[in-house]
Write a protein that binds this DNA or RNA. Structure first.
Lengths: 357, 357
DNA sequence: GGTTGTTTTTAGATTGGTCTAAAAGCTAGA
DNA sequence: TCTAGCTTTTAGACCAATCTAAAAACAACC
């Protein structure tokens, strides 16, 4: 208004160039510039070109915050995981990032450190930032009502890897039950009859599913031996668990582990007693972290697919944002068994190969 | 205005509760509510309490986007790394997250995959979101002018781990030169005289510093033998490099590696030839990833401190945001040598210990 | 030339906070 | 009672976009 055209201050002193400035420079209205920015088909080609030129020459930067205030989207997503230092989550975040990048979204990342309190703070903060949605790997001990709370907040939420609350909800993860079944089928095919399972402590879904898979597979094969050892899931737990199991009679001839860390610990425990994993006792892990191929002996592991899970989760979130009332969707990817040395099935071959994977 | 008090629609149909609503409910002005929200000392205690009660009872959610539009801060930071799947960066991001969380900041995370183009897109996107600052681990091949560009954008930027451009700039990283020196001092103390260095390809600062450290240490100890093998930095590179070096005469008796992955590859290469790392040839890595303690033999490694680096970087960024014109600061943490089996110094001890670290 | 129907463009309200400058309420001293 | 000097409170402009509804421009037809 009082600004008119004073060419001397093409780049204003105050700071950033706004729609107003572009409009003045191109001799059109603010509304028209806004339409050009959003590639609206309403604008005539000549006008569009003229405006584009002004945008270039004034060095305009779109202000997404201002746009979000009037519009309804922020083009941001919140991602809350419980242990970003775990390489599994690194890969998953990479998958999320790739999928979001394709549609111009950008994501806030927060690390709950498995503390429901921290997690709660982060969710509130993201709500204040008006994220369009949340990808949540619920921290251990998350109240089951949290999903309802998010619903009440009208914040689309996709659970990842673990889930809480009762269906229907959006979820992306891997089929832990199937994973344990694959491992046990393989062991049984190689003659094992006493197979134990190590790890899993509190009751979240990812643990429950593994246990289910274990019991189910043992039953299916009609094995008389069943031994499920609860524990937290660090390397030390694996180390201690294997010591305990070997002291029992009968002792298992094979163990399936909650994750690769536990499996590494179990292998160390065997070696400490002068035993060789894969020869004296088979060991199978879960996750197939990069180092599984690397340890000695190389660890047989159930490969989940963190990158793909991340991509799927992001895809679900975007769909939910665009269709708030569509049917909830649960994507469960199938894991694969990566057979290496520690299960005893290919003792000779792999050690002399060049490193793979 | 036309809204008056119609108690029937205390929670409005349209969506969120605003300052306006709180003000009406508490019988004060919008401005006063805003002051209460920001804990201003201007507000009388009685008023503050009354407003707080209204905020609670209406379920108000602060809109940071709207606040940022008028104010000057968004309380957000952009973090751009080149490989989030690498556990090192996982730990670093955890450190950043912890430091930011303390001051109510939240961060956008982007994964450049070492592509300057992707990196550029991310930076532009973050600029549009008006982040208060950037933490940047520059992708390989980043034009040295990028830092100046960010300066021109008036976007505070702290470089992490690698740096480009010419000082002064803000930077947080580790002293790679010292790290290599520590490794070589240790080897020399144990009688080694022919020590090679494996890895590092293109010219970014983190590679240059390692090479400098290598040459410097070799000179300092007056060793006649010097062998620096360039390569990319995967396990396969280590595997191939050790093969090459062992075929030379004289062959080295010890190798220091660009990172732990390369070192793992070198160990596999030795084992493939029937040699034992730490006995027939010493191997030392860099990064001290979790798995270093785990491999067989356990890998001696130069421990950098990713979590601490992340915290420092975040601290620098916050300082720069609050003091745009203060002196640039470079924080360089000192690495430590973690002695295990692969360097031959404690062959007997560690194998029988319970797993540590 | 006037009417109708498209295609383009625009004025002005709106979003939800912050900020400035001034007004309103107090208290105490003359 | 009046005034000076606090402490509190507030009206209204402002930030930078989007959105709605209507106006303007243009073409086609009778």
């Amino acid at each position: 208004m009082a600004r008119d055209e004073s060419p001397s201050r093409g780049h204003r002193e105050s700071g950033s160039v706004t729609l107003q400035d572009i409009a003045a420079h191109a001799g059109v209205s603010r509304a028209t510039v806004s339409l050009v920015l959003r590639a609206s088909p309403l604008v005539a080609e000549r006008t569009r070109a003229k405006v584009q030129r002004s945008i270039k020459s004034l060095g305009y930067v779109y202000n997404r915050g201002a746009a979000a205030l009037r519009g309804s989207r922020t083009s941001t997503l919140g991602v809350v995981v419980y242990d970003i230092a775990n390489p599994f989550f690194g890969a998953m975040v990479a998958g999320i990032d790739a999928a979001l990048n394709r549609v111009g979204y950008v994501s806030f990342l927060a690390n709950s450190e498995d503390s429901p309190k921290r997690q709660q703070r982060f969710l509130e903060r993201m709500r204040e930032h008006r994220v369009d949605g949340i990808l949540l790997c619920p921290a251990e001990g998350t109240p089951p009502t949290l999903v309802e709370t998010l619903n009440a907040w009208k914040l689309p939420c996709v659970q990842v890897l673990r889930h809480i609350g009762t269906p229907p909800f959006d979820y992306a993860g891997t089929d832990f039950r199937l994973g344990v079944n694959l491992a046990i089928d393989h062991l049984v095919a190689h003659g094992h009859e006493r197979i134990a399972f190590i790890g899993g402590h509190t009751e979240h879904s990812a643990t429950r599913e593994r246990w289910q898979g274990y019991r189910e597979a043992i039953d299916r094969h009609g094995l008389g031996y069943q031994r499920l050892l609860r524990s937290t899931v660090t390397r030390r737990d694996g180390f201690e668990a294997i010591g305990l199991l070997l002291g029992e009679s009968p002792a298992p001839t094979a163990v399936v582990c909650h994750n690769d860390l536990v499996a590494f610990g179990a292998m160390l425990g065997l070696q400490r007693q002068g035993l060789t994993p894969g020869v004296d006792c088979a060991v199978i892990g879960t996750d197939n972290v990069e180092e599984a191929a690397l340890s000695a002996p190389a660890l047989t592991s159930v490969a989940t697919h963190p990158y793909a899970i991340g991509e799927e989760a992001a895809r679900l979130a975007l769909r939910r944002i665009n269709h708030p009332d569509g049917a909830r969707e649960q994507v469960v990817l199938s894991p694969q068994l990566k057979v290496r040395e520690s299960c005893g099935a290919c003792r000779t071959a792999s050690r002399v190969l060049a490193p793979t994977l």
